[in-house]
Structure formats: structure tokens, C-alpha cells
Nucleic acid binder design. Structure first.
Length: 332
DNA sequence: TGCAGTGTTGCTTC
DNA sequence: CGAAGCAACACTGC
């Protein structure tokens, strides 16, 4: 479910909780979700072993970690030694992607797709039946980063659609996509502008929509145009802007485009304040639900009255396989 | 009981 | 070539 507000909530919490922590090992029982490197052993090694090159020879004499002890080259220079454990510098969001920035210019890039979410678990939470995280522990956790302080960053994902890749930094702007079908070689997707990027002005928004065809809802969800908006928030944004999801881009007047632009910012900002929507599976890193679903205006309200009290009944319409919700009275 | 529907994405088909 | 269909997976609700 995670769209921009849910991902942002998770990233904020991860930063607060685990920036600076050290990954000591990694666990996974659905290795298909790891797309780069494809071989698990390689992924595991790359993720957890830091390389420190050209240490002086004496440094190799003691306190070497168990694995990958260094060798001295024939010329007497110290070779490369490896240390188990890699630090997480910080966590950031790129569209709906979560990027763990690691030591040694590595990025662990995660896309949560439909039902993924991260939990930060310590022993106490794991064993406390009253803790909200408890209901999630052991349910659908398929991937864990085990930290050297005993905590775990767990990826819970009922439908197993989440994708993980480990890519050399410094920028994850391009992402090695999934191989859901075992035949693909992966492909690169371009990521559009972030709604909270300072360059995302109304003029920029208009420029992006020039020469675009199709209906406004699908464009809002096109990650290569603007990144972060999905099915829930595209419906919510268009209600806020009083624009029908069926409108074609080219038919929108300047004033309507302006309303859509303002609604994007307003709705997403409010949703982040409410810590996202927990329509079903989404939880924050403490296992708690968001609040936005309680104030949703149209999503999943088919047949109910419009909150604008205009006598409109919320309708559902399919565009491009997805359900959109809208009020025919106020959304023209 | 069985089947349509669910927050996402990208490949395949028409 | 662009839009629509479908698959990846597991569960819910009608």
C-alpha cells in the first residue's frame, strides 16, 4: 500500500532509530525479492562485509575479524582486509523507494510495492504481547537486517512483492528493476520529480504535463512524471481539486491545473502528518497504524455521500485496471 | 464455495 | 507505438 506519505513516515522513523547503526548480518526466507546482486551469497557478503584497503601491515596482526583475514602482498604491502559489519549512514526516500545509504558508497534500495513495511524490533517489543508490533512479528516477515546492538529491521510483506537491490552509490536515481517473471534481465526506470522537491513549482508541473495524453488520474500515478503518488492519493487529490478522474489532460484549464497542483501538496502533506493510510496492511516501524484512512474523502467510499454535502454519491470507476473514487457533483 | 478485488510495477500483447 | 492485460502472491469479503 505504501505511497509517498507511508514511505516518508517509515523513512523518518528509520532515520530516528537506526541511523548510525551497524548491520551485522542479514536474513531472508524469500530470496526472490533480492534482485541485485541476484546471487544471495554475493548479496549477503557485499552487504555485511566492509572493505578497508591499504591498512598498514601491523594492523593485520590482531583483532582481525574471523572472516576474510588480510594477506600481505609479495611486495610487503598490506592487502585488502575485510571487517564484518557495515554502518547505515542514513535513510532517505526517493519517490516510493527507501534508500539505506551505507558505508563504502553502497545503497540498499527497497521498494515496498503493495504490502511491504518495515518494523524495528528489539527483544522487549518482540516478547511483549501488548506491544502493537507483536501482532506483526513472525507473521509475514521475509527479510531482516540484524543490527549489532541486538535490534532487527524487519521487512514484513504479506504478498511478497517487495524488491530489494544493493547498488553502488552515490546515487540511486536509476534502479535495477525486478525480475518477477524469471525471464527478464531487469530494466531501468526513470524516476520523475518528487512533489516535495523545491523545483516542483506550478510552472514545472504544467511543463511536465505538456504533450501528455490520457486522463489526469493515470498521469498523477505515473512514477516517471511525478514520483510518489499512487491509487489512494490520486483519488484524494482530485477530490480536493474538484476535478474528475476521467478528465483528459489536454482538456484541463489553467485554473484547474493549479487546483490539482495545490491539492497534490496539501493532500500529501496532510497524509504525512497523519502518518499515512492503514487501509489494510500498512504499519509504521512500531507496528502502529496511520490515521489518514479515518479522514479519507473518497477512496473506498463508493455509494456514500460526498463530504461536501452537495448531494453527490461517491462513484467508482476503473481506469487502467485501477479503481478510482469520485463525486460526480463537485468533481467536474 | 469461488471468484473478484486489494496499496505496485513492468513485461507482454494487441 | 501506446494502451490494456496480466502476472507476481496471499488474503478478505461478497
Amino acid at each position: 500500500m505504501p505511497e509517498l506519505p507511508e514511505v516518508q513516515t517509515i523513512v523518518n522513523e528509520l532515520n530516528k532509530k537506526i541511523a548510525g547503526a551497524v548491520i551485522s548480518s542479514v536474513w531472508c526466507d524469500w530470496k526472490k525479492m533480492v534482485t541485485e546482486p541476484k546471487k544471495w551469497e554475493e548479496f549477503e557478503e557485499k552487504l555485511t562485509i566492509s572493505n578497508f584497503k591499504f591498512l598498514p601491515a601491523f594492523a593485520t596482526q590482531k583483532a582481525l575479524p574471523a572472516r576474510n583475514a588480510s594477506r600481505i602482498d609479495a611486495d610487503g604491502q598490506a592487502g585488502q582486509i575485510s571487517k564484518k559489519g557495515r554502518k547505515i549512514k542514513r535513510v532517505k526516500r526517493v519517490g516510493k523507494f527507501i534508500v539505506f545509504e551505507l558505508e563504502d558508497d553502497l545503497n540498499l534500495v527497497v521498494h515496498l510495492r503493495m504490502t511491504g513495511h518495515f518494523l524495528v524490533i528489539d527483544e522487549k517489543k518482540r516478547n511483549n504481547r501488548k506491544d502493537p508490533i507483536y501482532e506483526k512479528v513472525n507473521n509475514y516477515i521475509h527479510f531482516k537486517l540484524i543490527l549489532d546492538d541486538g535490534r532487527e529491521i524487519a521487512l514484513s510483506d504479506l504478498r511478497k512483492f517487495a524488491k530489494i537491490s544493493l547498488t553502488p552509490g552515490p546515487s540511486p536515481a536509476r534502479y535495477l528493476a525486478s525480475q518477477d517473471d524469471a525471464r527478464g534481465e531487469g530494466s531501468m526506470i526513470g524516476i520523475g520529480i518528487d512533489p516535495f522537491d523545491e523545483d516542483f513549482t506550478f510552472d514545472k508541473f504544467k511543463e511536465l504535463l505538456e504533450n501528455k495524453k490520457g486522463n489526469i488520474k493515470q498521469i498523477l500515478m505515473d512514477q516517471s512524471v511525478i514520483c510518489g503518488i499512487g491509487n489512494i492519493y490520486s483519488s484524494e487529490i482530485l477530490w480536493e481539486a474538484k476535478v474528475s478522474p476521467l478528465r483528459k489532460i489536454e482538456s484541463l484549464k489553467n485554473s484547474e491545473l493549479e487546483e490539482v497542483y495545490k491539492a497534490i501538496i496539501r493532500v500529501l502533506r496532510l497524509a504525512i502528518e497523519k502518518r499515512g493510510s492503514s487501509e489494510s496492511d500498512y504499519r509504521d516501524t512500531d507496528g502502529k497504524k496511520g490515521e489518514y484512512q479515518n479522514i479519507q474523502r473518497v477512496y473506498q467510499r463508493e455509494g456514500q455521500e460526498c463530504y461536501r454535502d452537495d448531494g453527490g454519491i461517491i462513484k467508482r470507476v476503473k481506469t487502467g485496471q485501477r479503481s478510482g473514487f469520485w463525486c460526480p457533483e463537485c468533481q467536474k
